[in-house]
Nucleic acid binder design. Structure first.
Length: 308
DNA sequence: AGCCAGGCTCTCG
DNA sequence: CGAGAGCATGGC
């Protein structure tokens, strides 16, 4: 086992604990990523080997500094840059909140949110395959049910990494899920449909007929066009990938029913909105639509009543 | 006990 | 096009 250490300098302001908490709120139980005892850990892949990154804060919100320690088989100094990039993505380190904050200063509600969650950054999940599988599982079911199912997949087909008395898992690779039959996927309480979707996606990705990495360089419209051609992926899931994996923070996922309800409750006196109306409303948030959504959800998760 | 939850596909007018 | 059924599970 080799260990690499490095320091990271997030763009300030950055609240490490708030951001790591928000990010791992649902993933915490998945064992692929945790935030515990002040340390954020995540299993990653380096040149096809497993490694575990551990990140902790050594600075402040205004002068953020992070220490990252990564352990894994055969790690060499050259691996550092890709590991740093992964940490930057999963913790949103290079996102500059100042534009969002400036836009919000005349908005009463947003100002309140920013006071409460100053330094919280939107994050991304660089593994597009994981994001897609997770989104498919999460379609139409509650987040808790989805976590149970996803944990089953991860612990059955993911690759384990043992460290310090705990087991962490790398999310299952496409090749693995493609090799697993639909019937076996169903044992994890997936519906027949979802088992087919996930199996089909895994097969397409592992055979190379779909290049998820290429999406990172494509326009939002092209990403949606590509993704919705895959069975099991509709508008909502494609928008989900744009916001949560590809870092397109200007996108407003108008296909998200929970978001529409939140918008109606918080901003429109409970009056129902169509996706088109919601999109028109979200125009005012310019390129900061995802930050607005992240801060709003953060408040809701904490039980803060936004309509007050 | 029933309804709903951060949808999608397929079918049918 | 738009509307409606079916999918499957756990929590309230």
């Amino acid at each position: 086992m080799a260990t690499l250490k490095t320091e990271l300098k997030p763009v300030p302001p950055f609240d490490f604990h708030l951001t790591a908490d928000y990010r791992t709120r649902f993933r915490q139980d998945l064992a692929s990523e945790v935030h515990r005892d002040g340390i954020y850990r995540r299993v990653c892949t380096v040149r096809d080997n497993l490694a575990l990154m551990s990140v902790s804060s050594t600075g402040t919100i205004e002068r953020p500094r992070l220490e990252m320690e990564t352990t894994g088989q055969g790690l060499v100094q050259d691996d550092l840059s890709s590991l740093r990039n992964e940490a930057v993505a999963v913790l949103g380190l290079d996102y500059d909140l100042s534009g969002f904050y400036t836009m919000s200063k005349d908005d009463h509600l947003l100002s309140r949110l920013i006071d409460s969650f100053y330094g919280l950054k939107p994050t991304t999940e660089p593994d597009v395959f994981e994001t897609l599988v997770s989104a498919i599982i999460g379609q139409q079911i509650s987040a808790k049910v989805a976590v149970t199912m996803e944990r089953g997949l991860i612990q059955s087909y993911g690759e384990p990494f043992f460290w310090d008395g705990s087991t962490y898992y790398r999310f299952p690779r496409p090749e693995k899920l493609a090799a697993v039959g639909i019937d076996e996927l169903r044992r994890h309480k997936l519906s027949q449909r979802k088992a087919e979707y996930i199996h089909g996606l895994a097969k397409a990705v592992s055979e190379g007929s779909v290049d998820l990495e290429a999406l990172k360089e494509m326009s939002n419209e092209s990403v949606i066009r590509e993704l919705v051609q895959l069975r099991g992926i509709g508008e909502w899931t494609a928008q989900w990938v744009l916001c949560n994996s590809l870092g397109r923070f200007e996108v407003f996922p108008s296909g998200d029913l929970a978001l529409l309800r939140m918008l109606s409750r918080v901003y429109l006196d409970g009056q129902a909105v169509t996706p088109q109306e919601a999109e028109a409303f979200a125009e005012r948030w310019g390129p900061y639509r995802v930050p607005v959504i992240v801060y709003s959800y953060a408040a809701i998760r904490q039980g803060i009543d936004l309509s007050a």
